[in-house]
């Protein structure tokens, strides 16, 4: 049931992302200000946007869970945040590499977007420990949803606050993405990479959810089998066994 959809998704992801990166390498022009190292932009920025979108999506799903109490939404919220944290590691590392190549430092505190992202990332790092430290499954989902909603609201607010904290010192390519001042031959690979990254997020989320559901089913089967074995176990419950009943 999952496999056909997943295969299409995975294929689309691979084609789009590869296409975007090839275009970024050969078609997109070398940026005048930063030279070749600006090409990091095509992997770093889409990853960051998708990760932030994933955090907000996790918050929306958390809200839906609180309203409907449908475990499906809890699962989606969990997987979205989980994948976004993984992407977040990539964002921070590639961002560090970019900062190093452009400004000679591994982390640039004056770059508001990078700083905001670090704060958001640190916040979401506590999501998993929070879930693990609540034993009751229903309570765990509920509390995780409250966290997801609060943190999801925090994401945009935090960006406003950090942007206000310091005047722009490096109004570089990052600002161009929102302003739309990007030249067309940079736009095409960038948006393609963004689509590819979104597809990657969706694909990996599906894989993760399929895995979780499968694991749940296996666990269910194990429990059922245990019960069956308990019933047929002659030492444990002799009267329930088939053969003695026929004898009586």
């Amino acid at each position: 049931m999952y496999s056909a959809k997943l295969r299409t998704l995975a294929l689309a992801t691979v084609i789009t992302l590869t296409g975007a990166f090839v275009l970024a390498a050969y078609y997109a022009p070398i940026e005048a200000d930063q030279g070749f190292s600006q090409k990091i932009f095509y992997v770093h920025v889409p990853m960051a946007i998708v990760a932030l979108g994933g955090f907000v999506w996790g918050g929306i799903q958390g809200l839906l869970y609180l309203r409907t109490r449908d475990p499906k939404h809890d699962m989606r919220s969990y997987v979205a945040i989980h994948m976004s944290v993984i992407l977040g590691i990539g964002v921070l590392v590639t961002g560090g590499i970019w900062a190093r190549s452009a400004w000679g430092v591994w982390f640039e505190w004056r770059e508001a977007t990078l700083v905001s992202f670090l704060i958001v990332f640190l916040l979401y790092c506590t999501y998993q420990p929070l879930r693990f430290s609540i034993t009751d499954p229903e309570k765990q989902s509920r509390y995780a949803a409250v966290f997801a909603v609060t943190a999801g609201t925090f994401v945009p607010l935090n960006f406003i606050a950090v942007r206000l904290a310091n005047p722009f010192i490096h109004p570089r390519v990052l600002n161009n993405t929102t302003g739309g001042a990007l030249p067309t031959d940079m736009k095409i690979p960038f948006y393609l990479a963004l689509i590819g990254m979104t597809l990657l997020f969706v694909t990996l989320s599906r894989v993760e959810m399929t895995h979780k559901l499968t694991r749940g089913r296996v666990r269910g089967l194990e429990r059922r089998l245990e019960r069956l074995q308990g019933e047929s176990d002659p030492a444990g419950l002799p009267a329930r066994s088939a053969a003695p009943q026929v004898m009586a």
Partner: peptide
């Protein structure tokens, strides 16, 4: 110039 960084990022 800077291609090592790009390679590293990807």
């Amino acid at each position: 110039d800077g291609s090592g960084y790009v390679l590293a990022a990807y």
